[in-house]
Amino acid sequence: MANSEDQDSEQVWHTAVEWVIREHESLSPVERQELIGWLNMNPAHRKAYDEASRLWLITGLVPPFEPPAED
């Protein structure tokens, strides 16, 4: 691939986030195997996935945004 390393890592990050999003909506057993295959392909995948999962957990702890009260 002619991609630069930066583009590659952006792509890996995007894929990792996509998996976390899909996981949140639920994965079929086949999709889960696919995810595991992707994670095993490259340690960078696992790293990005762990980072995305952790971020996901943090965002879940933030209560819904409330705009500052008017009047």
Binding site: I21, H24, L55, W56, I58, T59, G60, L61, V62, P64, F65
Partner: peptide, 23 residues
């Protein structure tokens, strides 16, 4: 937690809404 809360509050409203509905 604070940094992420701040980041979410900075999002354009539609983006934030889509994210909150999902997350």
């Amino acid at each position: 937690l604070k940094l992420v809360a701040k980041a979410i509050s900075e999002l354009p409203e539609r983006t934030r809404r889509a994210f909150e509905l999902h997350r």
